[in-house]
């Protein structure tokens, strides 16, 4: 599938410094509308750090991030989230003591309007808004396949369902871009292949572009329209799955890793 040239996100020359460590070094990266693109690289390559820049958690020491035609480099995280960049976390960070649907309602916070007084008085408008939000939350939970756990506390869900709930919560933000940080971590091969279909379903039904950080190469190769490879903070390759598969630098980066850590994926 050819990538449409219209970009929903364009990050240029991003660098992030942690003390003496250059975790991300002059990386430019864009996301075409409604595409599925991936970011891969060995452990510690700077993938999560790059995510954190896009979502406003870290401010880059160099470079800027454009979201559509709006610059978001210096916006606070909650603002970035509310204008359409939603993420999941590498280590699941659900609100464990809230139910699945409450988790989604929190993510809808910025789209809801009722304030202190209308909440206390439970005005008809506030009630209507709450009901619509709840319906929408349940719909999303059904969509990701955990509708029956809507009123279960998030911490009681199984690992796989928690991963789904993370995606559902991000979708509740009604994002234009969905950033998934190692969503298949801890899944078995069968679950992972189901996940590939799931990603496409999300993209098509929810009209989002998806940026995926992923270690599982079979997932990456079958789901991505474009792959970007980071190694020690630098972008070493970018292209279609076929191009990446045969790229010498990528193979070296990964083989070096595999030899030292025995990582076979």
């Amino acid at each position: 599938m050819a990538l449409s040239s219209e970009l929903v996100l364009d990050a240029s020359n991003i660098s992030v410094q942690f003390g003496g460590l250059l975790a991300v070094n002059d990386v430019s990266f864009n996301i075409p509308k409604k595409s599925v693109v991936s970011l891969i690289g060995p452990n510690g390559a700077g993938k999560t750090t790059f995510f954190n820049v896009l979502t406003g958690l870290y401010k880059p020491s160099e470079g800027k991030v454009m979201f559509g035609d709006r610059e978001i480099t210096d916006l606070p995280p909650h603002k970035i989230a509310s204008i359409g960049l939603a993420r999941t976390f590498q280590n699941i960070r659900l609100f464990g003591l809230m139910t699945a649907e409450e988790n989604l309602l929190v993510a809808m916070h910025s789209h809801l309007k009722s304030g202190i007084t209308s909440t206390i008085l439970r005005t008809p408008r506030q009630r209507k808004e709450e009901k619509e939000a709840l319906d929408s939350a349940r719909e999303i939970l059904d969509f990701v396949g955990i509708g029956k756990w809507a009123s279960e506390y998030a911490r009681n869900l199984s690992y796989g369902d928690q991963r789904r709930l993370e995606v559902a919560r991000a979708l509740a933000l009604k994002p234009e871009i969905l950033l998934l940080d190692e969503p298949t971590a801890g899944m078995n091969p069968q679950e992972s292949s189901v996940f590939v279909d799931f990603v496409h379903r999300v993209r098509d039904a929810r009209d989002v572009a998806i940026l995926l950080i992923e270690h599982d190469m079979s997932v990456v190769m079958s789901v991505s329209e474009r792959i970007t490879v980071l190694d020690r903070g630098e972008k070493i390759a970018e292209g279609s799955p076929e191009e990446i598969r045969s790229n010498q630098r990528v193979i070296e980066a990964y083989l070096g890793k595999a030899a030292s850590e025995g990582r076979g994926k």
Binding site: P77, A81, R87, F95, M98, V106, A107, H111, L173
Partner: peptide
């Protein structure tokens, strides 16, 4: 409640 649970995640969810 979300802030009490996980402040960072809450801010990432638009709170």
């Amino acid at each position: 409640l979300a802030i009490r649970e996980d402040e960072l995640a809450a801010s990432m969810m638009g709170v």
